[in-house]
Each structure stands twice: as C-alpha cells, then as structure tokens.
C-alpha cells in the first residue's frame, strides 16, 4: 500500500466511524404540540410571507430530518427562505406499547390533530399538506376522509399508490410471506429489518457502490465528508414500525393493492381517492425503485381535482428531494407551485 492510500484509508475509516457526529435537522424550531411519540414542530422564521402554512409529513420508516438534512441542503431551509410558514410532523419512535397503533390512528386521529394544532398556531383556516413516501399515502388518505375542510393544497412526493408490479409486492404477495404471523410475534417491526429489505432491492448499489464512491473521492483528495455523513446518518436511523400499522400497510398496499381499488376502510369510512379535490402536486422520480413512477401516476386519473400538476424528474426515491441537485432543480418548482396557491383567499 502506498503512503497516499494509507492516508486515504485512515480518512475513509474516520468518515465512516464518525458519521453519527454529523448534525442533521439543525434548522431552529419550536415544539408546538406533542402526543404520545408524535411531535409537531414549527420552524422559526422572520420571513413569513405566505399565510397558508406548509405541514410536512414523512414516512413511518426513517426519520423526518430528511426534510432538513443539513445547512445548505435543506428543503425546510429553502421553504423558509421563500417565505413559507413551515411545520413538521415527527411520528417519533414507537415502542412495544404502540403495537396496537394502526393506520387509522395516524390518518383519523394524529394527522388531523396535528393539522388542527398547525392551524391554531398559524392562525389560519387552511394549509398545504405535504407528504413523502408513506407520509404521502397517509396525507392522501386523510384528504379523502376530511374532504376539503382544512387542506387547501396537497403535495405528494414519491408516493406509492398502485403497487402492482413493484418488487415489494413481488416479495410479499405470496402465502409463504405470513405478515400476520410476523406482526403477532413482534410488537414493532425493527427498523433495521425494513432498512435491510429496502437496501436488498439494489444490493450492489447500497452495500458496495456507495462505499466505493466515497473511497474514490477520498483517494482523489476531495471527500464530500459532510454530505456523505449526513445522508449516511439519516439512512441508518430507522425507527420501528408498529405491528398493526405494518400489517395493515403490507396487506392493504402490497398483498391486496387495496388503496387504488378503493377497498380500504378506516373507521367505517371508505378511502376513496376520487374524493381528493384539492390542488394537487405529484412529484415522481424516474429511478425510484421504492415508489416507482408507474405506481404513482394512476393517482392522477383517480382524483377529482381540477388543479393537478405532475412533476417527473430523474432521480431516486430520496435523492430526488434531498440529493445534491434538488436545490437547483426540484425545490424551485415545488416552491413556485406553492407560492401561487398559498395566499389568503381574500387576496386571490
């Protein structure tokens, strides 16, 4: 080994070993409301210009800090700079005691309660609901149940809707994958297990190429330490998934594809995507293997909204909104779309 490579190896090891020290989700924020493990935050800003607040809702796997990954590469920071009043709903880290928490709790209770608190804090009647991945599905479900009451705009980022043909469906849509047995045995599904399954969808890319590229950068003397560490830290942080919610998610979405068929019922109310009549922005990523574009596009035909915008860009499930190109490409499009729809009604 040459001296330069030995130095690079030390640097490489140091980057990997200290990734937990990376600071993510650093934009200053205040707690507005808490309930069980759920917390609603409001980001501090002196530039609020648009009255309609934006509520960000992330998935039940991984943490919502991806919205605010690091200074200079933060969607939250971007929205604040544009003059929006930004709130973040953090589902927290469910424990064994949350085993009986189901999708109905998220959609029918906790999300509307968070919306209520957002509106109270902002002093407004309507908001923009922005969901990403599973968070997008929760938001869409909510929009079908609480039709046009407080949600003015609905933004869905890389959201799975029709799962036919997806790799997940291929894995679990078989009798031998017994999701009932799994969720009876485990009160919460370990996040690490779900993360492993996600990574197995592209094993070489996730288990090898990521590190190989980092090594190349280190050898070339230009390691992107902060960018790598912040993303790696976020990827490795996987909260558990409550058992009942996991069973419902896997069964309804992947085993039976119930959402697109309108067969899901939450507390005796049918989740009918046709009831979505809000201004709708759907963002898909061309290389998304978790929520493929083909599985999101059917939503555009199902909703009854008149104001629909579909933005499709090259990129992955997470990279599209949090990658290095997001700030220049996708965020301005989202920001412009929001600006036109975030005025008080009397000003329009």
């Amino acid at each position: 080994m040459r001296p330069a490579e030995a130095t690079a190896a030390v640097e490489f090891g140091h980057i990997l070993l200290t990734q937990d020290e990376a600071e993510i989700g650093a934009t200053p924020k205040d707690i507005v409301w808490t309930h069980r493990s759920t917390t609603l935050y409001r980001y501090r800003s002196e530039r609020r210009q648009y009255p309609v607040p934006v509520l960000l809702v992330f998935a039940l796997i991984n943490r919502p800090e991806i919205f605010d990954l690091r200074p200079g590469s933060s969607f939250v920071e971007f929205l604040l700079e544009q003059g929006f009043d930004v709130f973040l709903l953090d589902w927290g880290r469910p424990g064994d005691e949350d085993a009986d928490v189901g999708l109905d709790d998220y959609v029918c209770d906790w999300l509307p309660w968070a919306i209520r608190e957002t509106l109270r804090a902002a002093g407004q009647q309507e908001l923009t609901l922005t969901g990403w991945c599973i968070g997008g599905v929760l938001c869409a479900m909510h929009a079908t149940l609480e039709r046009a009451r407080h949600v003015r705009n609905l933004v869905l980022l890389t959201t799975p809707i029709d799962t036919d043909g997806s790799l997940y469906a291929h894995w679990v849509r078989r009798q031998s994958f017994d999701v009932d047995a799994l969720t009876e045995a485990l009160p919460v599904i370990p996040g690490a297990g779900i993360d492993w399954a996600n990574k197995m969808m592209k094993p070489v890319t996730n288990f090898w190429t990521t590190y190989r590229k980092l090594w190349d950068d280190v050898v070339a003397g230009k390691p992107r330490r902060v960018a790598y560490q912040s993303m790696a830290k976020w990827v490795a942080d996987n909260p558990p998934f409550p058992a009942r919610a996991f069973r419902e998610w896997m069964t309804w979405m992947y085993k039976r594809n119930d959402l697109v068929a309108g067969r899901i019922r939450l507390r005796d109310r049918r989740v009918d995507l046709g009831r979505i009549d809000h201004s709708l922005l759907v963002v898909t990523a061309g290389a998304d293997h978790i929520a493929p574009r083909a599985g999101t596009v059917p939503l555009l035909e199902l909703v009854s909204s008149r104001d629909i915008t579909h933005v499709d860009r090259p990129g992955g499930h997470i990279g599209l909104m949090a990658g290095s190109k997001a700030r220049a490409e996708i965020w301005p499009q989202v920001g412009d779309w929001l600006k036109k729809r975030s005025y008080a009604k009397e000003d329009v």
């Binding site: 031998s176 994958f177 047995a181 890319t205 090898w208």
Partner: peptide, 29 residues
C-alpha cells in the same frame, strides 16, 4: 460493478429469492 449490480437486481426479483426471503423471515420470527 454495473454488470454485477444488474445481475443481483435480477436475482432479488426472482421467484426463488422471494420464496427464500419469506422462509427466512418466518424462521426468524
């Protein structure tokens, strides 16, 4: 690397892998 990546993606999308995954999960549970 690209060839191996494509090959492994075909592998994980196969019936055999899906069945193996289901069995492994059942055993772990």
């Amino acid at each position: 690397e690209a060839d191996v990546a494509r090959a492994t993606e075909r592998l994980v999308a196969s019936e055999g892998f899906a069945e193996l995954l289901a069995r492994v999960v059942a055993n772990l549970v």
